[in-house]
């Protein structure tokens, strides 16, 4: 099958690769660009483990063809930390014990990041809605909800 070129900005860096036509963004990120932070859980859109941001919008990388992303800005959980300094959401997930096996965590964090960028002071219902496309089999969700609320509070305290 013909290879096609894909070129986009991944977490601030220009990236270009040849992939087989029909390759999903998830496969391109993981297999070609060494960004294994988005996980492949179901490849059906149902689990949210592969959630990334494309041009500032939350998307499922398993249902996105890589070649439709040419010229786009892609963000994944791998790009959230600032060097050694964790992103407030990453720190809150650690503090609130919101990750057990951790498989859902990158998707949860991207969904939460999209929420906090739009709405820095969410209530519990906003958080539940924001992560409603993400499945967690370990935590029972409550620690994740608390972590997102904690990160929002930490952000508003540091902004004050």
């Amino acid at each position: 099958m013909a290879k096609i070129s894909v070129q986009f900005t991944l977490n601030g860096s220009e990236r270009a690769e040849f992939v087989e036509s029909g390759t999903t963004l998830l496969a391109a990120l993981r297999d070609k660009m060494d960004d294994t932070s988005p996980k492949g859980g179901c490849h059906q859109g149902a689990c949210g483990a592969c959630t990334v941001m494309i041009d500032g919008e939350l998307r499922l990388s398993c249902l996105t063809l890589a070649e439709t992303c040419n010229g786009a800005q892609i963000r994944t959980t791998a790009g959230l930390a600032n060097g050694e300094v964790l992103h407030p959401l990453q720190r809150a997930f650690e503090d609130a014990f919101a990750a057990q096996c951790g498989f859902c965590t990158p998707g949860m964090i991207m969904a939460a990041a999209a929420l906090l960028e739009r709405n820095p002071n969410p209530d519990r219902a906003d958080v539940v809605e924001a992560i409603s496309g993400n499945v967690c089999r370990c935590t029972g969700y409550e620690p994740i909800i608390q972590a997102v609320l904690l990160a929002a509070r930490a952000n508003s305290t540091s902004a004050a």
Binding site: G48, T51, E57, L60, G133
Partner: peptide
């Protein structure tokens, strides 16, 4: 229709 990511697509 679906969660936030599905609705964006």
């Amino acid at each position: 229709v679906g969660g936030p990511a599905v609705r964006n697509m």
